[in-house]
Design a protein around this nucleic acid. Sequence first.
DNA 1: CCTAATTACTTCACCAGTGAATTATTCTTT
DNA 2: AAAGAATAATTCACTGGTGAAGTAATTAGG
Lengths: 174, 174
Amino acid sequence: MNKVTDIIAGLDEGMARVEQIVPGMPIDDVRLYKLLTLTAGAMQGELAQNLKPHGMAESDFHALMMLFSSPNGSASPSDLACVATQSSTNMTRIANSLVKKGLITRAHAVDDRRRIIMRITPAGRRFVNKLLPPMFPRLSATFAAFSAKEKTTLQRMLRTLAQSIDDVTAGGDE
Amino acid sequence: MNKVTDIIAGLDEGMARVEQIVPGMPIDDVRLYKLLTLTAGAMQGELAQNLKPHGMAESDFHALMMLFSSPNGSASPSDLACVATQSSTNMTRIANSLVKKGLITRAHAVDDRRRIIMRITPAGRRFVNKLLPPMFPRLSATFAAFSAKEKTTLQRMLRTLAQSIDDVTAGGDE
DNA sequence: CCTAATTACTTCACCAGTGAATTATTCTTT
DNA sequence: AAAGAATAATTCACTGGTGAAGTAATTAGG
């Protein structure tokens, strides 16, 4: 069970009731928020399932992918933490884990001995190259219901949304 | 810092490189996945910030809202766990927390003494009624960049996506 | 240059969430 | 009615993640 559509059905029902009780609720926006977080969460769960057999959490994989996709295959924990929306504390743990698996190396930067350089190893690259392709079919299938045009529209909307999020958080924190 | 748009900029750059290395990657789909999870994550973080002053985590609030929006203001932990994509273990902890705050009560069901009935208290309803409205302006602002028509389109797309997710997971597990 | 402030990472103590085993109750089958 | 299977919740041991304090290295000011 636990189907996303079932959860959404319950959500629609509950929101109709809440709308009656709570005056001024922007119901369309709340619904979009819930749809967004539910679908995203379900897809992240899919990824987590794929990673579990390899004893790897999503954040570990995320960090590894950033090294994989960086020009020189290396970065410092603080760089990754900033981009990965994660604390430096957790990056330490992630680095420990990846080093133990032999997927990255860790060394002090020569120019600034405070900085650590995490670098993906050949084994790390092999791991990514082996892990990714099997995920593609299901990912493609998930978006197969959209035409190329619709995908473009969705992508544009999500980029717009990202900009709005930044605007709102920047404006509200002053 | 830590702006979503900055992270997306780095993502676009990294994906261009990965596309060269990993053959057959459905780049559009991967990008949509990342945009979806990034925006959803940022918005969830916003909610978490609003809840933190009240010593409440997102899942606690989620559970409370489901009771709030249920017809009779009550449900069993297993009901909520199923809908909230959470383990029953965690529902026990959430129930403990909400009971301690006086926002819900917990009692055995009379017809089936295995079941627990969680029921939102008047204080719980007051809490929700007080907590929600201040969140509305920022939420509305986040979606203000979209016209009514665009919101409808986005909602439709996310519902389609939810259906696809269910189809893919159901088909792949057989 | 020598102190103070900053930066990068780590350690520590804690919160949030999970899977496996446990307990109590109900359902099923004979 | 009794034995066994199933279900609901909880406890336990563990992973994943955070904030605050600590350590080491660098930068800035006098």
